[in-house]
Design a protein around this nucleic acid. Sequence first.
DNA 1: AAAAGGATCAACCGCGAAAGT
DNA 2: TACTTTCGCGGTTGATCCTTT
Length: 261
Amino acid sequence: MGRKPCCDKIGLKRGPWTIEEDHRLMNFILHNGIHCWRIVPKLAGLLRCGKSCRLRWINYLRPDLKRGGFTDAEEDRIMELHSQLGNRWSKIASHFPGRTDNEIKNHWNTKIKKKMKHLGLDPSTHEPINNITDQTESDQKTNPNMCSNTNEGEEMKDQTPKNDVIAETTKTLTISDDDEELLAKTCKTLCAEEVDIESLFEGNEISISSSSFSSLYSNISRSESSSYLAEDSIEQWDLDMTDPLVPWDLFANLDDNLFLL
DNA sequence: AAAAGGATCAACCGCGAAAGT
DNA sequence: TACTTTCGCGGTTGATCCTTT
Protein backbone atom coordinates (compact mmCIF):
# COMPACT_ATOMS: atom_id res chain seq x y z
CA MET A 1 0.00 0.00 0.00
CA GLY A 2 0.96 3.63 0.00
CA ARG A 3 3.02 5.57 2.40
CA LYS A 4 2.32 6.32 6.00
CA PRO A 5 -0.01 9.22 6.74
CA CYS A 6 1.56 12.68 6.62
CA CYS A 7 0.50 13.45 10.16
CA ASP A 8 -2.43 12.62 12.34
CA LYS A 9 -2.56 16.17 13.67
CA ILE A 10 -3.30 14.82 17.15
CA GLY A 11 -1.17 16.65 19.67
CA LEU A 12 0.41 18.81 17.01
CA LYS A 13 0.94 22.47 17.71
CA ARG A 14 -0.66 25.16 15.58
CA GLY A 15 -0.54 28.92 15.37
CA PRO A 16 2.41 31.28 15.41
CA TRP A 17 5.88 29.80 15.64
CA THR A 18 8.00 30.47 18.69
CA ILE A 19 11.64 31.48 18.55
CA GLU A 20 12.59 28.11 19.97
CA GLU A 21 10.72 26.30 17.20
CA ASP A 22 12.34 28.51 14.59
CA HIS A 23 15.77 27.73 15.96
CA ARG A 24 15.11 24.02 16.03
CA LEU A 25 13.89 23.97 12.45
CA MET A 26 16.62 26.27 11.18
CA ASN A 27 19.31 24.31 12.93
CA PHE A 28 18.01 21.00 11.68
CA ILE A 29 17.76 22.04 8.05
CA LEU A 30 21.14 23.78 8.04
CA HIS A 31 22.77 20.60 9.21
CA ASN A 32 20.71 17.96 7.47
CA GLY A 33 19.07 19.55 4.48
CA ILE A 34 15.58 18.54 3.45
CA HIS A 35 14.79 15.11 2.11
CA CYS A 36 11.27 14.53 3.36
CA TRP A 37 9.16 17.16 5.05
CA ARG A 38 7.11 14.53 6.84
CA ILE A 39 10.01 13.41 8.99
CA VAL A 40 11.57 16.84 9.49
CA PRO A 41 9.46 17.78 12.54
CA LYS A 42 10.10 14.41 14.17
CA LEU A 43 13.83 14.57 13.71
CA ALA A 44 13.96 18.23 14.64
CA GLY A 45 11.93 17.63 17.78
CA LEU A 46 9.00 19.76 16.73
CA LEU A 47 5.33 19.19 17.45
CA ARG A 48 4.36 20.46 14.01
CA CYS A 49 3.28 18.74 10.84
CA GLY A 50 5.69 18.65 7.92
CA LYS A 51 3.49 20.94 5.96
CA SER A 52 3.71 23.61 8.61
CA CYS A 53 7.50 23.24 8.78
CA ARG A 54 7.79 23.56 5.03
CA LEU A 55 5.72 26.73 5.01
CA ARG A 56 7.67 28.25 7.87
CA TRP A 57 10.97 27.51 6.16
CA ILE A 58 9.92 28.79 2.75
CA ASN A 59 8.17 31.91 3.92
CA TYR A 60 10.28 32.97 6.85
CA LEU A 61 13.41 31.02 7.72
CA ARG A 62 15.08 30.51 4.36
CA PRO A 63 18.39 32.35 4.56
CA ASP A 64 18.14 33.72 1.04
CA LEU A 65 14.90 35.58 1.67
CA LYS A 66 14.86 39.18 0.64
CA ARG A 67 13.48 41.40 3.37
CA GLY A 68 11.84 44.76 3.09
CA GLY A 69 9.13 46.33 1.03
CA PHE A 70 8.64 46.00 -2.68
CA THR A 71 10.17 48.61 -4.93
CA ASP A 72 8.19 50.36 -7.65
CA ALA A 73 10.15 48.37 -10.22
CA GLU A 74 9.20 45.13 -8.50
CA GLU A 75 5.55 46.15 -8.37
CA ASP A 76 5.60 46.99 -12.08
CA ARG A 77 7.17 43.62 -12.83
CA ILE A 78 4.56 41.83 -10.71
CA MET A 79 1.78 43.59 -12.62
CA GLU A 80 3.39 42.65 -15.91
CA LEU A 81 3.80 39.01 -14.92
CA HIS A 82 0.31 38.86 -13.47
CA SER A 83 -1.12 40.05 -16.78
CA GLN A 84 0.62 37.09 -18.42
CA LEU A 85 0.31 34.40 -15.75
CA GLY A 86 -2.73 35.34 -13.70
CA ASN A 87 -2.80 34.22 -10.06
CA ARG A 88 0.06 31.75 -10.48
CA TRP A 89 1.95 33.20 -7.58
CA SER A 90 4.67 30.59 -7.46
CA LYS A 91 5.44 31.22 -11.13
CA ILE A 92 5.51 34.94 -10.52
CA ALA A 93 7.67 34.49 -7.42
CA SER A 94 10.19 32.50 -9.46
CA HIS A 95 11.07 35.75 -11.21
CA PHE A 96 11.93 37.39 -7.90
CA PRO A 97 14.82 35.68 -6.13
CA GLY A 98 14.36 35.96 -2.39
CA ARG A 99 10.66 36.68 -2.58
CA THR A 100 8.01 34.11 -1.70
CA ASP A 101 4.75 33.40 -3.45
CA ASN A 102 2.90 34.14 -0.22
CA GLU A 103 4.61 37.49 0.09
CA ILE A 104 3.81 38.46 -3.48
CA LYS A 105 0.24 37.25 -3.13
CA ASN A 106 -0.24 39.30 0.03
CA HIS A 107 1.32 42.36 -1.56
CA TRP A 108 -0.89 41.97 -4.59
CA ASN A 109 -4.04 41.71 -2.53
CA THR A 110 -3.23 44.55 -0.16
CA LYS A 111 -1.38 47.06 -2.29
CA ILE A 112 -1.13 46.43 -6.01
CA LYS A 113 -4.82 45.82 -6.57
CA LYS A 114 -5.58 49.20 -5.05
CA LYS A 115 -2.84 50.79 -7.06
CA MET A 116 -4.23 49.37 -10.28
CA LYS A 117 -7.74 50.49 -9.47
CA HIS A 118 -6.39 53.93 -8.79
CA LEU A 119 -4.76 53.85 -12.21
CA GLY A 120 -8.10 52.88 -13.72
CA LEU A 121 -7.11 49.31 -14.47
CA ASP A 122 -9.05 46.18 -13.68
CA PRO A 123 -6.72 44.02 -11.51
CA SER A 124 -8.12 40.79 -12.91
CA THR A 125 -8.11 41.64 -16.60
CA HIS A 126 -5.54 44.46 -16.64
CA GLU A 127 -7.87 46.27 -19.00
CA PRO A 128 -8.93 49.87 -18.45
CA ILE A 129 -12.07 50.17 -16.39
CA ASN A 130 -14.65 51.67 -18.74
CA ASN A 131 -17.35 52.53 -16.30
CA ILE A 132 -15.66 53.63 -13.15
CA THR A 133 -18.93 54.34 -11.38
CA ASP A 134 -20.25 50.85 -12.02
CA GLN A 135 -16.94 49.28 -11.13
CA THR A 136 -16.72 51.18 -7.89
CA GLU A 137 -20.21 50.18 -6.96
CA SER A 138 -19.58 46.54 -7.70
CA ASP A 139 -16.32 46.63 -5.77
CA GLN A 140 -18.04 48.11 -2.79
CA LYS A 141 -20.59 45.37 -2.90
CA THR A 142 -17.96 42.67 -2.92
CA ASN A 143 -15.53 44.53 -0.72
CA PRO A 144 -17.16 47.03 1.59
CA ASN A 145 -13.77 48.10 2.85
CA MET A 146 -12.73 49.57 -0.46
CA CYS A 147 -12.53 53.35 -0.54
CA SER A 148 -14.56 55.23 -3.07
CA ASN A 149 -12.96 57.58 -5.57
CA THR A 150 -13.76 60.50 -3.34
CA ASN A 151 -11.16 59.13 -0.95
CA GLU A 152 -8.45 58.59 -3.51
CA GLY A 153 -6.01 60.83 -1.71
CA GLU A 154 -6.49 58.89 1.45
CA GLU A 155 -6.28 55.57 -0.29
CA MET A 156 -2.99 56.24 -1.95
CA LYS A 157 -1.26 57.95 0.89
CA ASP A 158 2.03 56.52 1.97
CA GLN A 159 1.63 53.56 4.25
CA THR A 160 4.36 53.54 6.83
CA PRO A 161 5.64 50.01 7.46
CA LYS A 162 4.85 48.60 10.85
CA ASN A 163 8.47 47.76 11.54
CA ASP A 164 9.75 51.27 11.08
CA VAL A 165 10.82 51.27 14.68
CA ILE A 166 13.09 48.36 13.94
CA ALA A 167 14.30 49.93 10.72
CA GLU A 168 15.26 53.10 12.54
CA THR A 169 17.62 51.21 14.77
CA THR A 170 19.33 49.47 11.89
CA LYS A 171 22.75 50.80 11.10
CA THR A 172 25.33 50.27 8.46
CA LEU A 173 28.41 49.00 10.17
CA THR A 174 31.89 48.99 8.83
CA ILE A 175 33.40 45.62 9.50
CA SER A 176 36.72 45.80 11.25
CA ASP A 177 39.20 42.96 11.20
CA ASP A 178 38.08 41.91 14.65
CA ASP A 179 34.45 42.03 13.63
CA GLU A 180 35.24 39.97 10.56
CA GLU A 181 36.81 37.36 12.71
CA LEU A 182 33.81 37.26 15.00
CA LEU A 183 31.36 36.98 12.12
CA ALA A 184 33.43 34.26 10.55
CA LYS A 185 33.32 32.38 13.81
CA THR A 186 29.58 32.82 13.94
CA CYS A 187 29.15 31.36 10.49
CA LYS A 188 31.54 28.57 11.27
CA THR A 189 29.64 27.80 14.43
CA LEU A 190 26.32 27.68 12.64
CA CYS A 191 27.47 25.90 9.54
CA ALA A 192 30.40 23.83 10.72
CA GLU A 193 32.51 25.27 7.94
CA GLU A 194 35.16 27.84 7.44
CA VAL A 195 33.62 30.87 5.81
CA ASP A 196 35.38 33.58 3.88
CA ILE A 197 33.78 36.59 5.50
CA GLU A 198 34.90 38.93 2.74
CA SER A 199 33.10 37.01 0.08
CA LEU A 200 30.17 36.63 2.42
CA PHE A 201 29.51 40.32 2.58
CA GLU A 202 31.22 41.37 -0.65
CA GLY A 203 32.78 44.34 1.00
CA ASN A 204 33.18 45.76 4.42
CA GLU A 205 29.73 47.11 5.09
CA ILE A 206 26.60 45.37 6.23
CA SER A 207 23.32 46.56 7.63
CA ILE A 208 22.57 45.15 11.03
CA SER A 209 20.96 46.44 14.18
CA SER A 210 23.50 47.41 16.76
CA SER A 211 21.76 45.32 19.40
CA SER A 212 21.92 42.30 17.13
CA PHE A 213 25.58 42.82 16.52
CA SER A 214 26.42 43.10 20.16
CA SER A 215 24.30 40.04 20.77
CA LEU A 216 26.21 38.15 18.09
CA TYR A 217 29.41 39.23 19.76
CA SER A 218 28.35 38.05 23.19
CA ASN A 219 26.93 34.84 21.80
CA ILE A 220 30.19 33.99 20.16
CA SER A 221 32.10 34.78 23.28
CA ARG A 222 29.95 32.33 25.17
CA SER A 223 29.97 29.74 22.44
CA GLU A 224 33.72 29.53 22.52
CA SER A 225 33.47 27.74 25.81
CA SER A 226 30.74 25.39 24.64
CA SER A 227 30.45 22.71 22.03
CA TYR A 228 26.86 23.03 20.99
CA LEU A 229 27.65 22.13 17.43
CA ALA A 230 28.16 18.47 18.07
CA GLU A 231 26.62 15.71 15.94
CA ASP A 232 23.38 15.85 17.84
CA SER A 233 23.39 19.60 17.92
CA ILE A 234 19.61 19.81 18.00
CA GLU A 235 19.63 18.62 21.54
CA GLN A 236 22.48 20.91 22.42
CA TRP A 237 21.17 24.08 20.85
CA ASP A 238 21.41 26.73 23.49
CA LEU A 239 18.48 29.02 23.04
CA ASP A 240 20.02 31.67 25.23
CA MET A 241 22.78 32.06 22.73
CA THR A 242 20.57 33.26 19.97
CA ASP A 243 18.97 36.59 19.25
CA PRO A 244 15.70 36.75 17.35
CA LEU A 245 16.76 40.08 15.89
CA VAL A 246 19.83 38.71 14.19
CA PRO A 247 18.94 39.15 10.51
CA TRP A 248 18.94 35.97 8.50
CA ASP A 249 20.43 38.04 5.70
CA LEU A 250 23.72 37.52 7.45
CA PHE A 251 23.74 33.99 6.11
CA ALA A 252 22.36 34.77 2.68
CA ASN A 253 25.52 34.09 0.75
CA LEU A 254 26.57 30.88 2.37
CA ASP A 255 27.32 27.88 0.28
CA ASP A 256 24.17 26.90 -1.58
CA ASN A 257 24.94 23.27 -0.93
CA LEU A 258 23.87 23.79 2.62
CA PHE A 259 20.38 24.55 1.51
CA LEU A 260 19.71 21.83 -1.00
CA LEU A 261 15.99 21.25 -1.11
C1' DA B 1 -7.69 57.93 26.21
C1' DA B 2 -10.54 54.56 24.39
C1' DA B 3 -13.17 52.29 20.92
C1' DA B 4 -13.97 51.07 16.23
C1' DG B 5 -12.60 50.08 11.86
C1' DG B 6 -8.95 49.18 8.42
C1' DA B 7 -4.57 47.15 6.80
C1' DT B 8 -1.19 43.75 6.91
C1' DC B 9 0.70 39.30 6.75
C1' DA B 10 1.68 34.73 8.92
C1' DA B 11 -0.49 30.58 8.97
C1' DC B 12 -4.09 27.31 7.83
C1' DC B 13 -7.12 24.69 4.64
C1' DG B 14 -8.33 22.01 0.85
C1' DC B 15 -7.41 20.56 -3.60
C1' DG B 16 -4.89 18.51 -7.58
C1' DA B 17 -0.71 16.56 -9.41
C1' DA B 18 3.05 13.66 -8.77
C1' DA B 19 5.11 9.83 -6.85
C1' DG B 20 5.43 5.61 -3.99
C1' DT B 21 3.68 0.92 -2.89
C1' DT C 1 -3.38 -0.53 -12.27
C1' DA C 2 -5.46 1.01 -8.20
C1' DC C 3 -4.81 3.04 -4.17
C1' DT C 4 -2.39 5.95 -0.84
C1' DT C 5 0.65 9.53 0.56
C1' DT C 6 3.38 13.63 -0.16
C1' DC C 7 4.14 17.96 -1.97
C1' DG C 8 3.11 22.39 -3.71
C1' DC C 9 -0.17 25.75 -4.82
C1' DG C 10 -3.80 29.28 -4.36
C1' DG C 11 -7.58 30.92 -1.54
C1' DT C 12 -8.86 32.26 2.88
C1' DT C 13 -8.73 33.30 7.77
C1' DG C 14 -7.59 35.49 11.95
C1' DA C 15 -4.35 37.82 15.06
C1' DT C 16 -2.00 41.91 15.51
C1' DC C 17 -0.84 46.49 14.60
C1' DC C 18 -2.11 51.05 12.94
C1' DT C 19 -5.18 54.90 12.05
C1' DT C 20 -9.19 57.42 12.65
C1' DT C 21 -12.99 59.11 15.24
